[in-house]
Amino acid sequence: MGDLFRSIINIISILAIPLVLLLFLLWGFFKKVKVYEVFVEGAKDGFNTAVRIIPYLVAMLVAIAIFRASGALELLTTLLAPVTSLIGMPPEALPMAFMRPLSGSGSLGLMTELMKVHGPDSVIGVLASTMYGSSETTFYVLAVYFGAVNIKNTRHAVPVGIIADVVGMLAAVWIVRVLFF
């Protein structure tokens, strides 16, 4: 069942982009849209958007890099490990929970290391990869998406993102506990 689902989704994700390109452009063509001219007109904005993101991305990534390099995550883990063990979360997986919203490459490295050390099919291995799979790099998304439209006052976006992350991490612990161990 899982394998069938996986191969169906795999095929869809391989075909998605060529099909979307073909379908969208053909549809436009038959609707008498001057496809080439309109495409170029739209594509022009790509450069501006990308350049607009730069200051936001620099600000966000530098702050996160300083925080990571300082060893503050290790400190946070030591302080919070007794609390999170109460809900059945192994302390080894805790850094993953903190890293996931902050850094995509950092959490990828952590997940890989945890699986190498504890085995990919152990509780910690399954939990780490579930945590990785069940969230996005919140702060990166915030910087890029708001940066693209020059939003500086993000209002409740940060608390919302953090709430989503905490719930995602707790749900990952819960589902892994219930299903496998």
Binding site: D3, V126, S135, G168, M169, I175, L179, F180
Partner: peptide
């Protein structure tokens, strides 16, 4: 390796 598909969908869905 595919073991985590279900768990990730649940985790991300909740989030």
């Amino acid at each position: 390796p595919g073991l985590i598909i279900g768990t990730s969908i649940v985790g991300a869905g909740c989030a």
